[in-house]
């Protein structure tokens, strides 16, 4: 049975088309919460949904709006809340869950109506296992791609939430935009991925040269971006990073743990070079070479470029 009411929220206007499409398939009434400007609210209303706007100026710290937003959502008693995945939104979800007693389903792999509410799929261990759960009501954090975006049909409405936003105990001292070069790993036909076995920044540069010469892109495993900081975070592949399906994925010094493989399993061919013949990656590749990259990188550049 279709749920009565769904509430959707996303930090930026971009995510609402997908959320609203998903919500309308699952609930009779869809209400979109927007925290921001009247312009943003009318952009979302274009999707044909009822928008409730918490209007704030740009200097307001978004987290200070959570109490008002949570109060509004709680009063609506929706069976379903869809939140567009984002770092800030995870903190909101936890607070909303404690306020309402409704469980959070983080990064749902699937979401459908069930006899007793909703059935949602979650992955465990970053993709090693998956599990389906059923709950009468759920707060689902939804990443891009789960629902096909709704086309703007117009005819939505905007009402303003009449609530005061006050600053809480935490004070915002300053904020700075995070300068990250933008990269679209999704369009490259060849992707060269480097893992901890690449060994040095110099070798990362060699792998970058190889990727360039093959007309492809350079990517990496999470530890290269997150722990070592040798490449920016938007270049790591996996369950918490980018998901790609190139013609060829060339994994250099990557052990091949499931959390990484989830990001590259869609590749037409997976090619691996690793010095350990027992590395898990060799069980998941089309073509492999057991070799030390220190010696093999110059060969690769010579033979392939």
């Amino acid at each position: 049975m279709k749920a009565k009411r769904a509430v959707v929220y996303g930090e930026s206007v971009g995510g609402y088309a997908e959320l609203c499409a998903g919500a309308s398939a699952l609930a009779e009434e869809v209400i979109a919460m927007v925290v921001g400007s009247a312009d943003q609210a009318s952009a979302v209303a274009e999707l044909g949904v009822a928008v409730r706007l918490l209007e704030i100026s740009e200097d307001v710290w978004l987290d200070d709006c959570w109490p008002a937003l949570i109060e509004e959502i709680t009063a609506l008693q929706p069976e379903l809340v869809l939140l567009r995945a984002g770092k800030r939104v995870r903190a909101l979800a936890g607070r909303l869950s404690v306020a309402t007693g409704v469980p959070v389903a983080s990064d749902v792999a699937s979401l459908a109506e069930a006899e007793a509410g909703f059935e949602f799929g979650l992955v465990r261990y970053g993709g090693a296992t998956e599990q389906a759960s059923v709950a009468p009501s759920v707060i689902a954090i939804v990443g891009p791609g789960l629902f096909a975006p709704a086309a703007p049909v117009g005819g939505g409405s905007v009402t303003t939430i009449d609530a005061a936003v006050a600053s809480g105990p935490i004070r915002l001292l300053s904020r700075a935009p995070l300068a990250e070069e933008s990269v679209d790993l999704g369009v490259a036909e060849v992707v060269v991925g480097v893992g901890r076995g690449i060994g040095s920044v110099e070798n990362v540069a060699r792998a970058a040269e190889l990727a360039r010469k093959l007309g492809g892109e350079l990517a990496c495993s999470r530890p290269i971006a997150e722990g070592l900081g040798w490449l920016p975070k938007n270049r790591y592949l996996g369950v918490s990073g980018a998901v790609i399906s190139p013609k060829v994925y060339l994994a250099l010094g990557i052990s091949g743990q499931v959390q990484h493989l989830v990001g590259v399993n869609g590749s037409k061919a997976i090619v691996a070079i690793n010095k350990d013949k027992n590395a898990p990656i060799f069980g998941h590749c089309d073509l492999g070479l057991v070799a030390d990259l220190e010696a093999m990188l110059p060969e690769l550049l010579d033979k392939l470029a």
């Binding site: 007693g101 409704v102 469980p103 389903a105 949602f120 992955v123 465990r124 993709g127 090693a128 296992t129 998956e130 599990q131 389906a132 759960s133 059923v134 709950a135 759920v138 399993n265 997976i270 691996a272 013949k277 060799f282 069980g283 998941h284 590749c285 089309d286 073509l287 492999g288 070479l289 057991v290 070799a291 030390d292 093999m296 060969e299």
Partner: peptide, 25 residues
């Protein structure tokens, strides 16, 4: 808060798995 089903491994794709030693580079 939710009734959870059994944990299963996702369907995995079989790959060719032609792995060469350095001598066959």
């Amino acid at each position: 808060a939710a009734a959870a089903g059994p944990e299963r491994a996702p369907e995995s794709r079989q790959r060719a798995g032609a792995v060469y030693e350095a001598a066959q580079q």
